[in-house]
């Protein structure tokens, strides 16, 4: 399956929220939809889920118009909510039935996921009797009932403790391996980086980057190296390197200096210059940016 989000525009009360949003998600590859708070992630997902209509643009599945109610979709909205005073199993079955899943299958599936999340003891309890974290797990179970072909999680990790985050990560990995189409939005980069094959960055309603995460990292890290000296602190090292005329772009993070080598100056030439300058090299390696680095860089470029 291939889901295409094509040229989506959306305004509310005259204010444009989404500007020509386009990206593609394919089966078996997790898509991380990233952006800051208010960037337009939830609006895009709500338009995709037909909570409201987009002003312009199309959602296509395998080239045909996408109607979310015709597919078995597991959806975890950002605005979490279920019936506080209803028994957990009853409402899980009810939500699944509304999605077109047969009652018996819905019940069996609900019981499976409750057991998997160690909540089977509470299936006949009212939702309000559970802790916030456990209520969150019930919400996630809701989205997984009936083995959906498409999974859409809006900020799935918010509110989860590290243990439950790990449980969810395992489930998402499992679903990706099963060949499901998985989209999830987040502003927590570390979670996304762990298992996303594809990423899409959105900022102020505009897509600023989309594609394969490895390729993006390679492209952004191309011609950049990390350098750490045994006899100079980063500040002193930066001072020394700045005198090498051709090295134009130097930045640093907690680990080391990050140096952009122009094509005119190869690595060997750079190393020779370092040795001549009396720099004792403790570490040198190709630079692979983290998702956070990519995000900060791209958002910075967008605002420049």
């Amino acid at each position: 399956m291939k889901l295409e989000i094509k040229n989506i525009h959306k305004s509310f009360s005259g204010k444009k929220i989404l500007h020509d949003v386009s990206f593609t998600v394919t089966t078996g590859k997790a898509m991380g939809f990233l952006g800051r708070n208010g960037a337009g992630k939830t609006t895009t997902i709500r338009a995709l889920m037909d909570v409201f209509k987009a002003d312009e643009g199309h959602f296509l599945i395998d080239g045909k118009p996408f109607d979310p109610r015709k597919f078995n979709i597991g959806y975890l909205p950002e605005e979490r909510g279920m019936y506080a005073k209803e028994k957990i199993l009853n409402q899980l079955v009810y939500f699944a039935e509304l999605r077109g899943i047969k009652k018996a299958q819905a019940k069996a599936s609900a019981e499976y996921w409750l057991k998997r999340f160690e909540l089977d003891y509470a299936k006949n309890h009212k939702l309000e009797t559970l802790s916030k974290g456990n209520q969150q797990k019930v919400q996630i179970a809701q989205s997984l009932i009936g083995d959906p072909d498409i999974l859409i999680f809006d900020e799935p990790f918010s509110g989860l403790d590290p243990v439950n985050s790990q449980v969810l990560k395992d489930v998402i990995r499992e679903k990706i391996e099963e060949g499901k189409l998985v989209i999830f939005s987040s502003h927590q980069m570390t979670y996304v980086e762990e298992f996303c094959d594809e990423i899409t960055l959105i900022e102020q309603g505009r897509i600023i980057l989309t594609g394969n995460l490895d390729k993006i990292k390679n492209d952004i890290g191309k011609s950049k190296i990390r350098l750490k000296s045994a006899n100079f602190q980063n500040g002193e090292l930066k001072e020394k390197i700045q005198h090498f005329t051709d090295f134009l772009d130097i930045s640093e993070d907690k680990k080391s200096l990050i140096i952009h080598l122009p094509e005119s100056n190869n690595l060997n030439n750079f190393l020779n210059q370092c040795l001549k300058a009396g720099i004792e090299i403790e570490m040198i390696s190709p630079y692979r940016p983290s998702l956070t680095d990519i995000f900060i860089q791209k958002v910075g470029e967008e605002h420049a």
């Binding site: 889920m49 909570v51 979310p68 109610r69 909205p77 909510g81 279920m82 939500f95 509304l98 999605r99």
Partner: peptide
């Protein structure tokens, strides 16, 4: 349903008519 945010789940599962 709006107050406890169940509505979004409902409205994406079936039509508002129902």
């Amino acid at each position: 349903e709006k107050d406890n945010r169940t509505m979004e789940l409902l409205i994406t599962s079936t039509k508002p008519d129902a």
